[in-house]
Design a protein around this nucleic acid. Structure first.
Lengths: 121, 121
DNA sequence: CAGGATCCAGCCAGATACTG
DNA sequence: CAGTATCTGGCTGGATCCTG
């Protein structure tokens, strides 16, 4: 899931590498709708994820510059995650992927659902 | 790499699932430029791939309806692989991914390289 | 030529327990 | 609250040998 340092083999790979991984997209998806969000809140929203898995996903996304982590030195600890400009700029790619999926995926999405998604894009 | 049967969690996931895997994109990439291509020819073009790995990639892409496998009953055996309409229609999504990667990837692609790629899209 | 059959290593991801 | 540390099983992907 790490190596976004693809060696010019195929430019699409850079994008795929960053987005591949069990929880990456779900995490990104939750961040799309919100300005910023705290660790446990994110954890609650992503059904079935463990703290370890969430931390791993967030760390990799942060290393790839997709999300931003802001830590407040308070007790109890407080950390907020949000999308970077780079993260937000994935939108046009997302839209194309959604359109493609919507054409071919057997369990398709209703028009309302697509529009619901687009709201955040 | 299999489950393209994402459960409406996130429509982007359907696309990512299909394209994820060590050799999927490279294989797809080779198929983009050619009408159809035989197994060993493909194997020769994709540096470092084994017959097992190639077969796996091709099988999964075929199961997902991205490529078409045509077997001629001859001796010696002859099998040709090509993109389906579904496979070709991934192009617009590819283009967006390339544009995004080109903006942010540190080892960027020259304009000529992008155009070279676009030729096939 | 185009794979099939095995076997095997590594790492990916989950579960659990613990902490500043 | 927001993690870290550790153990573990399973699956992905590779190597090798074999065949219609």
């Amino acid at each position: 899931m790490k190596p976004a340092n693809s060696k010019k083999e195929c430019p699409v790979k850079y994008t795929i590498n960053i987005l591949s991984g069990k929880w990456k997209l779900k995490t990104l998806w939750e961040l799309q709708g919100n300005e910023c969000i705290r660790f446990n809140e994110l954890r609650r929203r992503i059904e079935g994820i463990s703290n370890v898995a969430l931390k791993r996903a967030l760390l990799e996304l942060e290393e790839d510059g997709i999300i931003k982590r802001v830590q407040y030195d308070e007790v109890p600890p407080k950390v907020e995650y949000s999308l970077t400009e780079k993260g937000r700029s994935l939108n046009s790619a997302f839209l194309e992927m959604i359109k493609w999926a919507n054409t071919y995926d057997s369990n398709t999405y209703s028009l309302e659902e697509i529009l619901e998604v687009k709201k955040f894009l």
